[in-house]
């Protein structure tokens, strides 16, 4: 707040911010609240328990779903983030930036069910083509390449997550001065070495944020995963199908709460670490900022 701000208005702004955060977090907090209730969702009496958390690991359906989702998240992250990084590097050096940015961000503007359905039709047709090709060649080797599977879900999720990773990395890359890469080249480093030694350490925060973001997006994603994975066996699809068919089990609430706790802890740690580091750097800079002779 500066000296000319209205104190009441200042408090109102904070109250508004708090209201927005509360609105966003209330459903998550409610799931957490239910996960500690021995009587489960909708019960009149609230009895605190950690029992459901203990039962998570005995629920094979949930653990299997978590495993599948975790694998999807890892594979999608390993592929999508480097692709986004390359795209961001190309974008930075491109003369005409409008066309590549349009291409890269286009998937963000297509509704998930339309993109998911389009990919579903595409993979179905591709699969038929490969089966036909196999029949033609007298082999069954191509029959399962593009059946709905982990691979098709991975491709769909890569298309979904790349634009987000691209934007996150590009923001960090904006501060990087390309002269430093040239200086590294002038020192004898080849292109890869210059990137790895000089550029990457400076954009690392963006790349790691993109990784975290991608993992969270994959965990959250329902439409594309349910259409492209085949079988409702990922974390979100299991939770939603349970909810639609039989209602969520108490373990599902516990699992949802656990995943939320982990996500909040990871993101909170990143923010805390960044703030502490910025504060420490600024204190060091101030301490060393005594007049220096040139």
């Amino acid at each position: 707040m500066n000296d000319y701000d209205n104190p009441l208005l200042h408090k109102l702004k904070w109250a508004y911010l708090l209201l927005v955060v509360t609105t966003l977090m209330t459903p998550v907090l409610y799931v957490m609240y239910v996960s500690f209730n021995a009587n489960g969702f909708g019960a009149n009496a609230y009895v605190f328990t950690l029992e459901w958390y203990g039962l998570i690991f005995s629920d094979e359906l949930l653990i299997g779903a978590l495993r599948w989702t975790f694998m999807l998240a890892v594979v999608v992250t390993v592929i999508a983030v480097p692709m986004a990084l390359l795209a961001a590097k190309y974008y930075k050096s491109a003369n005409n930036k409008l066309f590549p940015v349009f291409l890269l961000l286009a998937p963000l503007f297509v509704p998930p069910d339309i993109l998911g359905s389009a990919l579903l039709v595409f993979f179905k047709n591709l699969n038929l083509t490969f089966v036909w090709l196999g029949d033609l060649l007298g082999t069954t080797i191509f029959d399962s390449w593009f059946r709905l599977s982990f691979l098709t879900a991975t491709i769909g999720l890569i298309i979904y997550t790349i634009p987000y990773s691209f934007v996150v990395i590009l923001i960090t890359m904006g501060r990087y001065r390309p002269e430093q890469t040239e200086a590294a080249r002038a020192c004898g480093a080849n292109g890869w070495r210059a990137f790895w030694d000089i550029e990457f350490p400076q954009i690392r925060a963006g790349v790691f944020s993109a990784c975290s973001f991608t993992v969270i997006l994959v965990f959250n994603e329902y439409t594309r995963t349910s259409l492209l994975k085949g079988g409702f066996d990922t974390f979100t699809t299991v939770l939603i199908s349970q909810m639609l068919n039989t209602g969520m089990s108490p373990q599902s609430y516990a699992m949802s709460a656990l995943v939320s706790f982990i996500a909040i802890a990871v993101i909170g740690s990143i923010i805390l670490f960044t703030m502490l580091r910025a504060d420490s750097l600024s204190r060091t800079a101030r301490a060393k900022a005594e007049p220096v002779m040139s």
Binding site: Q180, A189, D197
Partner: peptide
């Protein structure tokens, strides 16, 4: 050849020693 740039070309995440020694490390 090697080059001295107008500005912004020092590696900000490295100390003076690391900056100066970078080319030798690469070599």
């Amino acid at each position: 050849t090697t080059m001295v740039f107008q500005a912004y070309a020092l590696f900000p995440h490295m100390t003076v020693t690391q900056n100066v020694g970078y080319g030798l490390k690469v070599a």
